[in-house]
Amino acid sequence: MQRIGKIASVGAVAVAAAFSLTACGGDDTAAQPSGTPSAPAAPSSSAAAAGAQTKGRECTADDIKTTGTFGQAPTITIPDDCDPPKKLITKDLVAGTGNGAKAGQELSMNYTVVTWSDKQVLDSSFDSKPFSLSLGAGEVIPGWDQGLVGVKQGGRRLLIIPPDLAYGDGRPGIKPQETLVFVTDAVEVPLDKG
């Protein structure tokens, strides 16, 4: 993968690794699992500790605040008064036009990702070049393969990805059981010729 070879920072390496592992849009919807079953992530001691410090409700897409519009590097603000969701959540922030992305299509995406636990930007492609992937091919974390289905060219989508669809037990630069929050821009989605 092109981007993996170019990324050197700890945070960027973690995101690139996520992309080498990886539903429909709509407002604040939990994505359904794709056709490939995945084993549930075993609870870790940090997940158990996090559960003991619950805020009493899970965050929704509307709780996450973003700034910027398509093509601009976004800011992502995660609130302190709710827990990370346990299921994949997607929300179109800008609708886009044309056909929705389907499995097997080559997409070109920009993204910024923030880690839930420390609310820090882990990586962003807005200052370099868009990231290319074949949707549904397992080149990226499952949260991307599932969460980008239906995105349209020129669309901006929020993805809140739970650990079991991201890194589970962690990677360098990413804590175990970390929830990731992405703002993605669909730079290119091929026209459906069928």
Results as ranks from 00 to 15, higher is better:
65 K>E: 04
125 S>E: 03
181 V>G: 08
183 V>I: 11
143 G>S: 08
70 F>E: 02
57 R>C: 02
119 K>S: 00
113 V>T: 00
77 T>A: 12
100 G>W: 10
32 Q>T: 09
93 L>A: 11
192 D>Y: 11
138 G>S: 02
189 V>Y: 00
19 F>W: 07
51 G>S: 15
138 G>Q: 12
99 N>K: 07
177 Q>N: 14
57 R>V: 00
27 D>T: 14
126 F>Q: 00
69 T>K: 00
97 T>Q: 05
28 D>N: 11
10 V>W: 15
135 L>E: 01
118 D>G: 13
10 V>M: 11
167 Y>G: 04
96 G>M: 05
13 V>S: 08
100 G>F: 07
67 T>R: 07
145 D>I: 09
164 D>H: 10
85 P>W: 08
100 G>A: 12
103 A>F: 15
113 V>F: 08
62 D>T: 13
86 K>L: 04
70 F>G: 10
11 G>D: 04
16 A>P: 10
93 L>G: 06
2 Q>G: 09
33 P>S: 06
171 R>Q: 03
34 S>R: 11
94 V>H: 07
78 I>Q: 02
183 V>M: 00
122 L>C: 14
165 L>R: 14
55 K>H: 02
106 E>G: 07
52 A>M: 01
186 A>I: 02
30 A>Y: 05
23 A>E: 07
83 D>K: 08
37 P>I: 05
25 G>T: 07
86 K>Q: 11
60 T>K: 06
15 V>W: 14
3 R>M: 12
152 K>L: 07
22 T>F: 14
51 G>T: 05
128 S>I: 03
87 K>R: 14
120 Q>N: 11
178 E>W: 01
158 L>S: 10
100 G>V: 06
55 K>Y: 01
77 T>G: 03
181 V>W: 03
64 I>C: 09
170 G>L: 00
146 Q>L: 10
34 S>T: 06
136 G>S: 04
164 D>M: 13
137 A>E: 08
37 P>H: 03
192 D>P: 12
66 T>M: 14
126 F>P: 04
153 Q>K: 07
116 W>I: 01
72 Q>C: 04
178 E>F: 02
90 T>P: 09
78 I>G: 02
17 A>E: 15
85 P>K: 04
177 Q>T: 11
24 C>A: 15
103 A>M: 13
81 D>I: 01
108 S>A: 10
60 T>N: 10
109 M>S: 14
163 P>I: 00
28 D>A: 09
179 T>D: 02
85 P>V: 04
29 T>Q: 15
173 G>M: 05
105 Q>D: 01
3 R>C: 15
122 L>F: 03
96 G>R: 10
103 A>N: 15
40 P>R: 14
152 K>M: 10
32 Q>M: 09
178 E>L: 10
108 S>E: 02
41 A>M: 13
78 I>R: 01
142 P>M: 07
66 T>I: 03
114 V>Q: 01
7 I>H: 14
128 S>P: 00
104 G>T: 09
52 A>I: 03
91 K>A: 13
175 K>H: 09
45 S>L: 15
123 D>G: 08
84 P>D: 09
94 V>K: 13
6 K>P: 15
171 R>E: 06
